[in-house]
Simulated scan of single mutants.
Amino acid sequence: MSQVSAEMKAKSEVYHGDELCQEKTKLLLKEVGLPNGLLPLKDIEECGYEKESGFVWLKQKKTINHKFEKIGKLVSYATEITAFVEVGKIKKLTGVKAKELLIWVTLNEIFVDDPPSGKITFKTPTALFRTFPVSAFVIEEPVKELKNKEEKEEEKQVKQVGNAVEVQEV
């Protein structure tokens, strides 16, 4: 049974399709100051965000497991994930479990400690927690190459140096 009601959808931004939902998910994570690789989902069918309460949801075709190689942890993402987001924090998280030793542990809160420390903490409903470096959940995004010479020309900055003009590539 879905936790996302028709009433909630009516007052939310709702998007459909994997490519658009991937983009919106990464944008939301960036806006709230969380690492962009925190939700490595595949085949997202729908995502939504209700700004007033911070409620978000993601629906994907099937449950997926993802191993975060930098920390050696396996995480399971259900077909529906819901949460409330605010700057630096995800609360009341549903649909996400992490494997600890031989058991799957439900996660219900994720937060970034004081940003300079670069630490991210994952909590369970039983108040157990684990802290890792934020860098373990960051995906390096490829730099988009400029498509044509005109775009390159627009990127040049002209800087006045005395009576001479110096052109620098950015």
Rank of each mutant, 00 (worst) to 15 (best):
K9V: 05
I110W: 00
E151D: 10
K24Q: 15
G88N: 02
V4W: 06
H66T: 10
L28D: 00
I81L: 14
V14P: 01
K123P: 03
E19F: 12
S117D: 15
P35Y: 01
G33R: 06
L34I: 01
H66A: 09
G37T: 06
C47I: 01
V167T: 13
E7H: 10
E154R: 15
L128P: 00
G72T: 09
S135T: 11
E46F: 03
V143E: 13
W57N: 01
K59L: 07
V158K: 10
K97N: 13
K156I: 11
K61Q: 10
Y15W: 14
P125E: 05
E50M: 12
Y49M: 00
V161M: 12
F122L: 02
V75T: 09
E153Q: 11
A127C: 11
T126S: 13
S117I: 07
L29C: 04
I64C: 05
E45P: 02
E69L: 11
G72V: 08
S76I: 04
K70T: 08
A78I: 01
Q160M: 14
K24N: 07
V167S: 11
N36M: 07
K24R: 15
L28H: 01
L27D: 13
F111G: 04
H66D: 06
P133L: 02
E45V: 13
I110E: 00
V158C: 06
F84H: 05
G95L: 03
V143W: 08
T121N: 10
N108H: 04
E169N: 14
E100Q: 14
G95D: 04
V138G: 05
T106K: 09
P40S: 06
K67W: 06
E7C: 05
L107A: 02
K59W: 03
E141D: 08
P115L: 11
E23C: 13
G37H: 05
